[in-house]
Amino acid sequence: MRPFAITPGGITGRHRRGARIPALLAALALAAAACGHPARDYHIPPQALPEHEKALSGKTAPIGEVTYTAIGLRSKIPEVIGSHASWIPHGQFVRVRLLMVNHGRERHDFNPGRQLLITADGATHAPSIDAMQVSRAPVGVQTIASQEMRAFDLWFDVPANARVKALRVFGDPSSSRLGDQLKGAAVAGAKNPVDIPLT
């Protein structure tokens, strides 16, 4: 599945067979409330959740000038099916839908392959390359444009009895300020990575 971008021009993207883009309204409202005024916020129509996915309450964490919000979660997925292949996990697939908003004046990078799922036993799990490929999820470093919103799925293969706890997000803490860029300095006080609770 390709990522979709929400920009002032609208929403673009492609749906997975039998699924629609999950509910973004609550998460966008929370993200916008942190940095705007209701009269100046976007009004995004509700989006239907993919089958069996749970909408999350919109817990947001910043890394530098980009905010990250886990907006959807599905665990115990027995198989990923794409247009060209299907794949069965070693344990269970877990899919987390992540919304990113770049509040800065510069582009920021995001690498889906660096993100980690934390399970209740404290173990960390890297994304499943197989599931990411079959589902047509983004691979390689992604560029988030200035003022852009983007959401897409991260797929993980974890033990069958594992319970998810959090998503550990590794982002781009760089600053748009010219002085910081000349020094190669990050946004003051930026933490990287950050953990976003999924429970």
Rank of each mutant, 00 (worst) to 15 (best):
Q142T: 06
Y42I: 15
D41Q: 12
H90D: 12
A34S: 10
V101E: 00
P138L: 01
H108Q: 02
A55H: 10
N102E: 04
A85C: 02
N102H: 05
D195V: 15
V158C: 11
D180I: 01
P46D: 03
I11W: 04
L98T: 06
A131Q: 06
V94M: 05
L117V: 10
S135C: 14
D153A: 11
A39D: 10
M100Q: 04
S174Q: 11
L73P: 14
A190E: 00
Q115L: 12
K59V: 15
R74M: 08
I44D: 10
H84D: 08
P193W: 04
I77E: 03
D195Y: 10
Y68F: 11
L56N: 08
T12C: 00
R105M: 06
A162W: 00
W155R: 01
S83K: 13
R168S: 14
L30Q: 10
G122V: 13
P62L: 00
M132R: 08
G179H: 04
L28Y: 09
D195Q: 11
W155I: 09
P46A: 04
R2G: 13
L182W: 12
A5D: 06
A32Q: 13
L116T: 07
L116K: 15
A151V: 09
A188N: 13
F170S: 08
I21F: 14
A34N: 05
A48D: 14
K76T: 11
L24V: 14
I118V: 12
T7V: 12
R150W: 03
G18A: 04
D41T: 14
A85S: 09
A126Q: 12
W155L: 08
T124L: 10
L98E: 05
L25H: 13
A23K: 01
K183V: 10
K183Y: 07
P112C: 05
A188F: 06
I129N: 08
P3M: 05
R97K: 03
V101Y: 01
A137F: 01
D153C: 03
A137K: 09
L116Y: 03
Y68V: 03
G113V: 06
V187T: 11
V94W: 02
N111W: 05
G104D: 02
A85R: 02
W87Q: 07
L30S: 09
A151E: 07
A29L: 12
T199I: 11
R168F: 09
A23R: 07
L73E: 05
K165H: 10
A137S: 15
A131C: 03
A137V: 10
L167K: 06
D153K: 07
L116P: 05
E106I: 06
T60F: 09
S83Q: 14
D109Q: 04
W155N: 08
H52R: 13
L49M: 15
A61M: 15
M1K: 07
L116G: 06
F152W: 08
V194S: 07
P159T: 09
V94A: 14
R16I: 13
T143A: 05
K59T: 13
R97A: 01
P78L: 04
A126S: 13
N102M: 02
H43A: 09
I196M: 11
A27K: 00
F4A: 13
Q47V: 04
T7F: 02
S135G: 09
P45S: 05
M132K: 06
P127H: 08
P197N: 11
A5M: 12
L178K: 05
C35W: 10
A32S: 07
P173T: 01
A34E: 13
W155G: 09
N111T: 11
F93L: 08
